[in-house]
Design a protein around this nucleic acid. Sequence first.
DNA 1: CTGAAAGCGCTTACAG
DNA 2: CTGAAAGCGCTTACAG
Lengths: 333, 333
Amino acid sequence: MAVSEATAKRRVTATDVAAVAGVSRATVGFVLNRTRGQTISEGTRERVLEAALRLGYRPNSAAQALASGRSRIVLFVLPDWPVEYSFRIYLDEASRVLDEAGYSLVTYTRRPHGETRPLWELLTPDSVFGFTSFSPDEIASMRGCGIRRIFPDPARQEPLDLSLAVSAGPRLQVEHLYEHGRRQLAYAAFADPLPSSLVQARHDAARERAHSLDLPPVDIRYIDYRDGSADDAVRAWHGAGVTGVVAFNDDVAAAVVSAAIRIGIRIPDDLAVIGHDDSPIATMFVPALSTVRFDTATLGRGFAEYAINQTEGRPLPDWRPPVSAILVRREST
Amino acid sequence: MAVSEATAKRRVTATDVAAVAGVSRATVGFVLNRTRGQTISEGTRERVLEAALRLGYRPNSAAQALASGRSRIVLFVLPDWPVEYSFRIYLDEASRVLDEAGYSLVTYTRRPHGETRPLWELLTPDSVFGFTSFSPDEIASMRGCGIRRIFPDPARQEPLDLSLAVSAGPRLQVEHLYEHGRRQLAYAAFADPLPSSLVQARHDAARERAHSLDLPPVDIRYIDYRDGSADDAVRAWHGAGVTGVVAFNDDVAAAVVSAAIRIGIRIPDDLAVIGHDDSPIATMFVPALSTVRFDTATLGRGFAEYAINQTEGRPLPDWRPPVSAILVRREST
DNA sequence: CTGAAAGCGCTTACAG
DNA sequence: CTGAAAGCGCTTACAG
């Protein structure tokens, strides 16, 4: 009666648990946090655990954060553009592994308008990971609220690129077209200005691979599927003798293929097109799109491992993202 | 020198600001929080503001949350299935409006495996909103860590469905096919078990609208674009004289259209197909897909308004989500 | 093996 | 108009 009344009125605290278990508040903390270096008798441990369970005790995380100086939050800042389809699997895996290590992964999409107070100030995460790099202002804001571990951190020349498989996909795309006899290649970029750094990086990788295969220069054009740019690009490429198109992603590949169909260019005979990501559209499109897939679950686990070690201050010197790109051949090549 | 040394060593606190401004810590709080009912002289106000700016003071949110009992976080629990494309715009708008009111919107995707500690226990948000309803266990967990405002809350028979425009889209889809002379309709559902409640709700809305138009019963089939189910469905429908297909979303519509094309059924002459969401695939698909679009920005603002009022304990009695569905006619109908 | 106590950095009545 | 002080619920040396 007294207990249920208290439960209804206010939140159960460690003091309540201590009272029921007949120990001090400190001991409650030691048991529940499995504090290392403390030895607790089995009887005490059981009494505390039992009392905590019975009262439905949930530690107050704000108090924990304030007292310990750690929030057990890992913040992952996503870019302001729609991330590829498979990225959800990546995040799910990363989240699961971090959770096992006692951390929560919170994702945060930067808003175009800029908040009064960015999310990292409100959450004060133990570490912040960015899909792309941070601006000096952002770094200053994070440092200002006590966040010590920021990646990628420009000051440290951090080698890791969290967009991870930047070059593996484009390389595979080029190799695939090459193996099927295509020599004059073009790159279909994404006109949306937001993911421009990723577009740039993928294009660079494709161009370099083409160069190393002694192929002629790769013409790049920016495709916006809402206007006629795909038609223009396909016409221009067709006139210039292009026989293979490397697309930034499956959406762009679909736009190129659909423009070609409308114009009357045969896919893949006249023009082979390869996408990137193996998103649902690649399966459903007619013709189905050849593309490149990643083992995103493994990548997610890899990121989590990296994040945990960085957050706890023991970086893995030789760590590399476990990238594995797989070619998926369908009808467009 | 002394200041920059201190800055480097530890975080700037209200005590530092108070010392520099020559006031008490309480006054710093009053100024920075614009505490109502406190009158602060202009001179003091300016000194505090100036000192805070100069020192780069950021309030410690854990301490604020602990002392005030409010975290200023609104948690939005998303379902475990890929939300429709346009939902990002919805979230962006909602986030922006909440931010203006001093709240941060954190989104959280339930993980299939279940965490050791769900995110609401770690963040202790002031309120939690679910896209779908919560299980009794989840409700208990939230209540246990002191979260008072939960929506939808089964105990209150909360009328609001946060998936919002559940029936408006399907109704419009059916009406569109009806207006173009289609009488024998079918519903193409999404085979993925995860969004089943949404599939069910949309199908119900479509069936009811068809019924109210005196149309014959709507046959429902579950489409998985990774197997042959679309082919089977299209064949069966064709044999049964179906002339119009209402699809759960654009992905499913694309799968149906592509199956029809492969089989040799003409779109839209033999079979009209309408999607839902106006996602990019609807534009890019050949033929381009007719679909239904929502004014998601307005919906997002509407949700934010609702959330702010609920969070601050003054529910709007007559509030309705500002749903406006628009028909987008393309080539598939 | 366990407890008393200081401290984390705020907010908020309460005095003056 | 402003300050001294209690309190939020934890963690963590430090004693014993």
